[in-house]
Amino acid sequence: MFREEPVSFKNRADQELFGVAHLPLVSNDERVRKIGVIFLNPGPGYRIAHRRLYVRLARRLAREGYYALRFDPAGIGESEGSVDEAMLFNLFTSINKGRFINDVNDAADFFITRYGLEEIILIGLCGGAMTALLAAPYCRQKLTSLILLSFPVLFNSLEAEEKTALAPAYARDIVRGYLTNLMNFKVLSLSAWKSLVRNIKDRGLHRLLARLLEVLRQAVSKDSPSFLHPNFNKLFLDVLERVKKDIEINFIFGEYDRWKLYFEVEFEQKIAKKWAEKGYRKFIIKNENHLFTFQESQDELIGVILGLLPPTGKEVAQVLGAAKEGGQRVPAC
């Protein structure tokens, strides 16, 4: 069983941030370790995450004896502050440069102090994963592990995407997509033609043709592993160097997430050997996309995450009965 309570705290800019804490109902047995897991918002999304993924994960972790916090940094959800970026990809870029790292560390201070936690783990999806990694070196508290879902090694930018000289691995992936569409008779689909017309209108026919030629050229060329993608987020490498050796780094991807491909091509094939001594773990959830859409995969994801968390020792302690009604409490679902 667990209970939930809404929380609020001030960040260092004196803005009030809001969130929900999930608290296990375990006894005060000293053999039970108080371990906290903080969920970091994915991109511009708020604390529930796409498909309510964070709500499901946090509730499951609380049932297993962990403390969990889902909160919104400044300008997100109900939290104070504002986001001034006009375009979404500009907001993504600012997040991937560390926009929220102070709020994460303020949240960690609050969470640990409020519930007397012994250690914390950061979990994030997409932009939240990058936030977790970028925040890690600045964490004043006992951070022991990072769990990074659908980690984005590249900055989002439509303009940059067009300028990018494609790596052969991506080009082949794109050509595979074209062939699949052809085999599925998408050529007969009205919406596919509408989408093409819209694309021509937005980007211009000459640019689309140039892009197509580049894709085909790269698809038949050999891999060139030394070429670094111009959108590669180099902050990621800087931070890896600074993250303390005793922090575990875990990457989890959906099998069909394009960010998995970017991670493998841009980081693992080109750079990771340099970081071999650092060590990290990577897990793939079968038949899944970027957002872990399917319930079965979410269950598998939860299993992987639980396997990565240090044991709380909950099993040695007596689990208390159901939460009482009233106040700010919610009984377990």
Binding site: V83, E85, A86, M87, L88, F89, N90, L91, F92
Partner: peptide, 11 residues
């Protein structure tokens, strides 16, 4: 509706 990152961030 969110169609992609190349759109306005509407608040």
């Amino acid at each position: 509706i969110l169609k992609g990152t190349n759109q306005r961030y509407i608040t």
